[in-house]
Design a protein around this nucleic acid. Structure first.
Length: 156
DNA sequence: GCCAACGTTGGC
DNA sequence: GCCAACGTTGGC
């Protein structure tokens, strides 16, 4: 019995960590997420093998640049315990970690960047539950339905 | 660099 | 529990 593969979109600022960086390293621990909703998606929703749309944010132009896969179940984000880390969280303990991350494995780059403005133009096809284009939403980890996944990749 | 939108913190 | 202040995100 296998759970159905789910799909996600994960944002990264290319200056910090780009799809080329992911291609180089192969697999990367997705540490540093400090938003509860995004954490919950990783911790409660993600399973190994799930598909990930890799999105470049805070750049010109922003958009989807590649595909990755979830490489493991979520585990406590080690950076929350590291005093010198930018992501250190004094309220987190080993017994009760606050933050979790999965590892993300490179699959492939898209043949072209699918830009945000183009994605916005297809709001009708994507539906109202698509968090990327929902007004005011800044989630860095968000679910993508199978239909949305298929549609977005049809734009490649 | 600006700033709108949102989340978190902490005083009360 | 309210809400002002502050920090962050991320498009532009």
């Amino acid at each position: 019995m296998t759970a159905r593969r789910r799909h996600w979109l994960m944002k990264s600022e290319p200056e910090a960590f780009s799809i080329d960086d992911l291609e180089r390293v192969g697999t990367e621990p997705w540490t540093g997420v400090r938003n509860y909703q995004a954490r919950n998606f990783m911790r409660n929703g993600m399973k190994p093998g799930d598909g990930v749309l890799f999105y470049h944010s805070n750049c010109t132009p922003p958009g989807i640049v590649g595909i990755a896969t979830v490489a493991c179940e979520a585990y406590p984000d080690p950076t929350q315990f590291e005093r010198k880390s930018h992501y250190f969280d004094p309220k987190a303990t080993r017994e009760e970690p606050r933050w979790f991350n999965v590892d993300v494995r490179f699959e492939r780059k898209l043949s072209r960047l699918v830009p945000l403005d183009e994605i916005r133009r297809h709001a009708d096809e994507l539906g109202e539950d698509f968090a990327l284009t929902r007004r005011g939403s800044r989630l860095s980890v968000l679910p993508v339905s199978a239909a949305q996944w298929k549609f977005l990749l049809s734009l490649e």
